[in-house]
Design a protein around this nucleic acid. Structure first.
Length: 425
DNA sequence: TCTGGGGTCCTAGGACCC
DNA sequence: TCTGGGGTCCTAGGACCC
């Protein structure tokens, strides 16, 4: 029995999450902003129709937003994460093998469904998700993951597809591939698109007919795989268990410019705390730490400075004070006075499972059981009562560097205090 | 004048994804 | 005035070793 892939993709996911709890916003233009309320990272179809592009800086679109009464949300990742897991759980009930590909996408491996029944199968799944979670999705089906992705794009694009499109055994497969811009193919970004368009390779169909060797030379083995996958040869397997993480990062742009080392220190200490929390959540310890700082690259007239430094720890650790000590000393080495900073960040890598830490016999300080329990308590409190409930003193109290979140919706599904209230009169 | 070659590891940079 | 964040993978080139 042959197997096929389905790509299930939530439509305008962040916007759809907000709409579940604000149904009056259906058919209205809505955008969700990036961290710091900087740019639009999700748009409803109505907002797209107004011409607001992906990544549009908010300040450049103020006028349109006001004029058309676009509803604006700061991003509420706690809400989106919870809605995402509801969708993913449901998918798990309908397909034996699911790869959660991102917060709003999943690949399903489909076996035992005859070719001619694929569309109906996907349509039922779509209705089920809409009814149970309230999120509209699009589903694309194909013999390979790349083709499932293509089919998904087409399902969103072509009128009459009703959110579901199958390329499996489709008689007009090439004609359909010809409707998709080469830059929309999975694995083709802006650089490769430029190169391809120069050579008159304009659509997914053109790319399918490219010589694999040429693709390999000009787009690495990944490009070659894309060509084969478009032709229907499986090169990219489904990954039902996520591979172990190789890096954990945390960084933010500042809500307002920062020049003082002390403010950088406060911000960084809170990011290190957050990164370490993620680390412990995965039951990992970090063997190395990198810190980077940068000025605002968008300011043409301001002097620019960006730099990064890495140090490896004598022994892998997930104890925040140990990580902070290393981070703090790296920051001292990186900091140069006289610049206006926009961003600071931390990356933890050299990750190992916390029960497999290689011990260093010359180490002067090792995390004790007491310290491990301290971190556990800290994480529990912050998980239960919300991120940042318990903070390190090093993170400061006024936190002028903190990001902007002026349009935040409540955490409807994860906080008792913020449950939706319905009034009957 | 002649002056090896091959393998491995690490890193930086560049591409991609959502 | 205001422009996100968190990842992965591949490749080329240098360092180093025998």
């Amino acid at each position: 029995m042959s197997s096929y892939y389905a790509l299930v993709d939530c439509n305008n996911f962040y916007v759809s999450c907000e709409r579940v709890f604000r149904p009056a916003l259906k058919h209205r233009p809505v955008v969700v902003l990036s961290n710091n309320d900087g740019c639009c990272v999700a748009r409803s179809n109505e907002a797209k129709a107004l011409g607001i592009p992906m990544g549009a800086p908010l300040h450049q679109w103020k006028e349109i937003i006001r004029k058309h009464r676009v509803t604006v949300f700061s991003s509420n990742y706690v809400l989106y994460g919870d809605m995402s897991s509801r969708v993913m759980n449901l998918l798990g009930e309908h397909a034996p093998r699911v790869e959660v590909y991102s917060i709003d996408e999943a690949f399903l491996e489909i076996t035992g469904v005859p070719q001619e029944a694929l569309r109906a199968y996907a349509c039922r799944l779509r209705v089920r998700i809409l009814q149970s979670v309230g999120i509209p999705v699009s589903i694309g089906l194909g013999e390979t993951k790349t083709l499932a992705k293509v089919a998904n794009r087409l399902a969103k694009k072509l009128p009459g597809s009703n959110g579901v499109l199958s390329l499996v055994g489709h008689p007009d497969k090439e004609a359909l591939l010809d409707k998709l811009d080469v830059g929309e193919v999975w694995g083709v970004g802006s650089q490769y698109k430029r190169k391809l368009v120069q050579r008159k390779i304009l659509t997914a169909r053109d790319l399918m007919h490219v010589e694999p060797d040429w693709a390999r030379q000009n787009m690495t083995v990944c490009g070659m795989r894309t060509v084969y996958e478009l032709r229907g040869t499986k090169c990219i397997p489904i990954e039902t268990v996520p591979p172990p993480k190789k890096a954990i990062a945390c960084s933010r742009s500042f809500g307002q410019p920062v020049t003082e080392l002390n403010s950088l220190r406060e911000a960084l200490s809170s990011y290190v705390g957050r990164a370490a929390e993620k680390l412990r959540g995965e039951r990992l310890a970090a063997g190395a730490i990198q810190i980077y700082i940068a000025t605002n690259p968008f300011l043409d007239n301001a002097p620019q400075y960006a730099n990064a430094k890495t140090s490896s720890l004598p022994e892998a650790s997930s104890y925040t004070p140990v990580l902070w000590e290393a981070a703090s000393s790296l920051l001292d080495q990186l900091y140069k006075p006289g610049f206006v900073y926009k961003k600071v960040g931390v990356v933890l890598f050299g990750l190992v499972p916390e029960n497999l830490i290689q011990l260093d016999c010359f180490i002067t300080h090792r995390s004790t059981e007491r310290e491990r329990r301290l971190m556990m308590t800290l994480d529990n409190v912050n998980q239960r009562w919300g991120m940042g409930t318990l903070n390190y003193a090093a993170s400061g109290l006024c936190q002028a560097w903190k990001m902007k979140r002026a349009h935040l919706s409540p955490s409807y599904t994860t906080s008792w205090a913020e449950l939706l209230v319905v009034n009957a009169r």
